[in-house]
């Protein structure tokens, strides 16, 4: 159990920067966004629009380059082995990445990044504006982090979750202090207070009451403008599109984030589309989050971060969805 004075955070990051690429929330033209920091004083402890998913699973990535010469194909690929720290990742976002882990368990590109990324989580000392994580894990992590920071006033309380986490404590030991039992109690009360302030939205068991034809799904579908934003900011959405980009007998294969709300996502070569209607696409997204994923992995593919609502141009709100499903889906 450790703690660090808030004033020392910039120095803490500056030490990490000697060995790692440090990713953390910072201010860009008035917005809090995750970025690769160049110095510790750029850090802000603020809620961002998107999860930092793109640092383990990029929006777009080259899978391999190919060449066709003298009737022979050659393929070249490289894995990203940059050592990174994501500092300030929220519990919901880290849980989202854990959902990606099971999907990408054999994906070398993902695994290389994931393995090389240290997670310094920031438990939520106050509820965010649109989160509803109470029944989906809550504002603090029990596992999965390398270090977990909690704002307890003048200090951040630090929990160590792994050897990599301890190594970072060693690296920065001049800035770190031992935490007291009182500090730990403060941390617990901070988290309890956050939990109390979170909306009471029950999710567990929802897979059993979801029905195929619920009017709420149709209502959302009629509004959805197929921007893909909910998928892109979601910490646990993982679908991608694959494309070959040819250049004179050579080229590369790339993948980039896709969205199940786009009609072309399931369109076949003939032009036929099993999810032709907006309603069936909307249902796929919602059912995947709250039913299909659960049936396979016994966990929801939603961590209650509320980011999809924030980014949605027509304000489709999963909190509203969940409540209405319990009430019969009208």
């Amino acid at each position: 159990m450790y703690k660090i004075k808030k004033d020392n955070i910039p120095k803490f990051i500056d030490i990490l920067l000697k060995e790692y690429e440090v990713i953390a929330p910072t201010k860009v033209h008035g917005d809090a966004v995750y970025a690769v920091l160049s110095s510790g004083d750029e850090f802000i402890d603020e809620h961002t629009l998107a999860s930092p998913k793109e640092f383990v699973y990029p929006q777009i990535e080259k899978l391999f380059e190919y060449k066709f010469e003298k009737l022979k194909f050659t393929v070249h690929y490289e894995l990203d082995t940059t050592k990174r720290v994501i500092m300030g990742i929220k519990p919901c976002d880290l849980r989202g990445i854990e959902r990606l882990d099971v999907i990408f368990e054999n994906d070398p590109y993902y695994l290389s990044r994931r393995k090389n990324t240290v997670m310094i989580a920031f438990a939520c000392a106050k509820p965010c504006e649109h989160g509803f994580c109470k029944d989906l894990g809550g504002p603090s992590l029990d596992k999965g982090y390398d270090l977990q920071f909690t704002d307890i006033g003048e200090y951040y309380f630090i929990q160590v979750g792994s050897k990599r986490g301890s190594a970072i404590i060693d690296m920065t030991k001049d800035l770190i202090e031992k935490a007291t039992d009182d500090d730990e109690k403060t941390r617990e009360s901070v988290i309890e207070k956050t939990i109390k302030q979170l909306p009471d939205i029950k999710v567990k068991g929802i897979e059993k009451v979801l029905e195929w034809d619920m009017p709420v799904v149709e209502e959302y579908a009629s509004k959805c403008i197929s921007c893909g934003g909910c998928n892109f900011v979601c910490p646990s959405c993982f679908c991608y599109n694959v494309a070959d980009i040819p250049v004179d007998g050579a080229g590369w294969r790339q993948r980039d984030w896709d969205s199940c709300l786009l009609p072309g996502f399931t369109r076949m070569a003939s032009g036929e589309n099993p999810r032709e209607e907006a309603k069936s696409r909307m249902r796929q997204r919602l059912f995947h989050k709250f039913k299909y994923f659960y049936e396979v992995y016994l966990e929801y593919q939603c961590t209650g971060c509320g980011r999809c609502y924030q980014v949605c141009p027509v304000k489709i709100d999963l909190r509203d969805f969940i409540k209405r499903v319990w009430e019969g889906g009208k």
Partner: peptide, 9 residues
């Protein structure tokens, strides 16, 4: 805080 699909891509 919103974009259309063309903006995202």
């Amino acid at each position: 805080g919103a974009l259309c699909i063309k903006g995202w891509k």
